[in-house]
Design a binder for these strands. Structure first.
Length: 193
DNA sequence: ACATCGATCTACT
DNA sequence: GTAGATCGATGTA
């Protein structure tokens, strides 16, 4: 494993959304470490009507307009949280939504957090993976590149060994034609929809 | 004050 | 495999 360079997330958001596939999300919990591989992402750009940042900066989406490489956690459906990684320069409101994870380590903790669900359903959706990782608005706007963070990202140091599928995004009512959802081809941990 | 937005689970077929 | 039920936060008027 190796850390990311700060500049990694300043690249254009679509490139980051693709580059995040195969990278590791790490969570420190009181009961131990959880590690999972990112297998599905979506890019949300500044000029995108489906993006929270489309109508400008507000208290909720402020992390998207801050520096890159931080978390943006938002609450949806009155019961779920979703995790994004901020991208691009300060002042440019863009982010990548993490949609699905493949458990690598700490799967017993994930199972305890998720309750009685099938193994493949543990982290195959943005609301599911935040439950699995115990992520709430407490984890909003934290530095995902700092090794001291309880939630952080790591690169693997390995070359990419999978193909990326590009398709339309899930669960949005605007800009549904934009193909900015990316996932690892033939990976069984990708969300079903 | 009110309209808009969206992920998951359950129960059933 | 799928239809239906579930709610609160947000932003604008």
């Amino acid at each position: 494993m190796k850390s990311f360079s700060k500049s990694f997330f300043k690249k254009d958001t679509i490139a980051v959304a693709k580059a995040l596939l195969g990278k590791l999300l790490i969570r420190e919990t009181p009961s131990g470490l959880i590690v999972a591989r990112i297998v599905e992402t979506e890019a949300y750009l500044l000029d995108d009507p489906a993006s929270h940042s489309f109508n400008g900066r507000t208290p909720r989406n402020a992390p998207m307009f801050g520096v890159s490489g931080k978390s943006y956690v938002y609450f949806t459906y009155g019961m779920y949280n979703c995790l994004n990684v901020t991208t691009n320069k300060k002042g440019v409101g863009e982010a990548v939504l993490i949609r699905a994870l493949e458990p690598v380590e700490g799967i017993e903790i994930i199972k305890r957090n998720r309750g009685n669900v099938e193994e493949k359903n543990l982290c195959n959706g943005p609301g599911k993976l935040t439950i699995a990782f115990g992520i709430t608005k407490e984890e909003n706007d934290i530095d995902l590149l700092d090794e001291g963070s309880e939630l952080r990202l790591m690169a693997t140091g390995k070359a990419r060994d999978f193909e990326i599928v590009e398709t339309t995004r899930v669960g949005i009512s605007k800009a549904t034609e934009i193909q900015q959802r990316f996932y690892i081809k033939r990976n069984k941990w990708v969300s079903s929809k």
